[in-house]
Simulated assay, not measured.
Amino acid sequence: MKKFTFIFKRLLQIIPLLIIVTILAFALSNMSSGDVAEITLRSQGLEVTKKNIDAVREELGLNAPLLTQYVNWLMKAVHFDFGISFQTNKPVADEILSRYPATFMLAVAAMFISILLAIPIALISARYKDSLLDHFFRIVSTAGATMPDFWLGLMLLYIFAVQLKLVPVISGSKLQNILLPAVTLSVHFAAIYIRILRNNLIEINSYDYVRAARARGLSKNAALLKHGLKNAVLPCITLIGVDFGKLLAGQFACETIFSWNGIGKFAVDSINLKDLPVIQGYIIIVAVTYIIINLLLDILYLYIDPRIRME
């Protein structure tokens, strides 16, 4: 019962967050440079005259009071109706959602590779603390954390596409070509997780319950795996969730380099073209994604950490 109460309270907390996000997204149309009606006419290749501007303002409801405009826009946004994109002349929701699966696949693949790299390296580094291998992994993780994604992506593309010709230079959003962009994005996150997990494992290894397990005959490796890893991973779950949300928001540089048709590149192109409906829709969808991920993380903690259930 307490679990459901907690989840219900978290759901109630989401409502004011969503309202704030919608207000900020709606405010873009009033804060942007230039008249929305004029921008709409130019994007459609129509002549900018006072008559046409007045007609567009009437059609878009821009002559109504600001509060009425917001309520009307919000009612449509609730149904994921953000209007028509200036650059494609198609519904914004369709344009964003058509690119979302590519972004989602890339985010899942990048996060999977990050965790797959981080856990064994952190375990080895913590097990052989201050050894030559530990120093090597620490140097590599520092380099990985500071390495720009766009530079790494260009290097991987040059090596595997141009020199070795193992992948096409322009691959598109195909599942068989996901490895290089996923590796490009995973290196930075894996490097951070390695350092955090290593430090957590070393700290946990000095706790009394781990020493007691060792005293009962459990080997150092077994104690590290059985008692250390689970507790070391717990503090990283929130970080992994936040990073996964970042990836779901789209990665412009990586998507551009590998011709990956995700929402990141589409959003940046829309900003350059002042495509306000797309920008507003993008903000709402990304914000909802972040909120859902945080809610799922809170629920996950209820089941993996008994101390939270006690609280």
Rank of each mutant, 00 (worst) to 15 (best):
L132I: 13
D269W: 06
G228C: 00
Q13C: 05
T22N: 14
P181H: 09
V210N: 05
A102C: 00
Q44F: 02
F80S: 13
V286C: 05
A190P: 10
G172T: 02
S270M: 02
L247T: 00
S125V: 02
A212M: 14
L276M: 14
P277C: 05
I263M: 12
L97D: 10
P148L: 05
L123P: 07
Y290N: 04
A213K: 02
K2F: 13
I178Q: 01
T146C: 12
L276C: 04
V78Y: 10
D54A: 14
T238E: 04
A145T: 02
Q44D: 06
R99E: 11
N231V: 09
K230D: 03
N200V: 07
R309S: 12
G172V: 00
I293V: 13
D94E: 15
I159D: 07
F80C: 03
M310T: 14
A102Q: 04
A287N: 07
H79R: 14
S259V: 03
S29D: 10
M111E: 10
S114I: 11
I119G: 08
L239I: 15
P306F: 03
F189C: 12
E203K: 11
L276G: 06
I14L: 15
I196D: 00
G281I: 01
R198A: 08
F8V: 05
I39L: 15
A249V: 04
L201I: 06
F80N: 12
S186K: 04
P235V: 06
I96V: 08
L24G: 12
K246S: 14
I263Q: 02
F112M: 13
R42D: 03
L18V: 09
M147E: 10
V183Q: 09
N63Y: 05
I115F: 00
L106G: 02
Y303W: 12
D54M: 04
I291Q: 08
I283S: 03
P235M: 01
